[in-house]
């Protein structure tokens, strides 16, 4: 299968690989996918509590080159966005940016799910913090 130049670039030079402290109340973690399906994405965001803006995003992905590129691109896009702006990122935006072929669309869906899961985790932590 031929990969687009952008997929190859993200694969060879992945942006923001790594992990943030999971227990930190300003960090939201999303873990989506399943090993037996061939892809698992862990995507983390750290939100500045004063501004509500995502100031750090990290990922680790087990998956094909397109899955790695989708999550790498997602972390790039997340930085500097508010939580609500982050939730507006659609998998179709990722498909367009990376020129993913039809068989790889599920990679972009997984990346969108990972963003939503990370934000949901962050929001849950915030609500739990306010409640206590």
């Amino acid at each position: 299968m031929a990969y687009s130049d952008k997929v190859v670039d993200h694969f060879n030079n992945p942006r923001n690989v790594g992990s943030l402290p999971k227990q930190d109340p300003t960090v939201g973690t999303g873990l989506v996918g399943a090993p037996e399906c061939g892809d698992v994405m862990k995507l983390q965001v750290r939100v500045n509590p004063d501004t509500g803006v995502i100031d750090e995003a990290k990922f680790k992905t087990f998956g094909c080159g397109s899955a790695i590129a989708s999550s790498s691109l997602a972390t790039e896009w997340l930085k500097g966005k508010t939580v609500d702006q982050a939730l507006a990122i659609k998998n179709t935006d990722i498909v367009a940016e990376l020129a993913l072929p039809p068989v790889k669309i599920h990679c972009s869906v997984l990346a969108e799910d990972a963003i939503k899961a990370a934000i949901a985790d962050y929001k849950q932590k915030q609500e739990a913090g306010q409640a206590s």
Partner: peptide
């Protein structure tokens, strides 16, 4: 993420995957 979890002592068979 799987390698990281295993190195942290997580049993991958016990994780509830989505």
């Amino acid at each position: 993420p799987l390698y990281e979890m295993v190195k942290d002592g997580v049993d991958l068979t016990k994780v509830e995957w989505s």
